[in-house]
């Protein structure tokens, strides 16, 4: 199992969640976060904004679904044809165990 964390533009959140649901990955957790990337924030005039609001979408998937989920997020979170700075990042980490609280069942 893998935990996929995608940091995307907040205005793209609904689109990414909709596309994920369409692709069969309905369950997700969303956190509003602020952060900056490699570009060190945005400079407008003399003011540097380095706490840029983003949405962090977190979902646990089976190993074999990793590529599908990443493809969906890449497609839905990209702005324009070429993409732009600030479109976000995707991180993948291993999950060793998962439990459903209501049944105590092991697994997704």
């Amino acid at each position: 199992m893998l935990l996929i964390r995608a940091v995307v533009r907040p205005e793209k959140k609904d689109e990414v969640l909709f596309e994920l649901s369409q692709a069969g990955f309905h369950a997700a957790t969303v956190i509003d976060v602020v952060g900056r990337g490699k570009q060190k924030g945005i400079k407008i005039g003399g003011v540097v904004y380095d706490e840029i609001p983003k949405a962090l979408i977190m979902l646990a998937v089976r190993d074999e679904d990793k590529k599908d989920v990443i493809d969906v997020v890449l497609r839905a979170a990209k702005t324009g044809v070429k993409g732009a700075y600030g479109d976000g990042k995707i991180f993948v980490s291993p999950v060793e165990e998962a439990y459903t609280i209501s049944s105590g069942a092991v697994g997704l």
Binding site: Y99, I101, S102
Partner: peptide
Amino acid sequence: RTENRLGDGKIFVL
């Protein structure tokens, strides 16, 4: 755990 069951949550171990 609640009697509603659905929506009680998930636990992940990393």
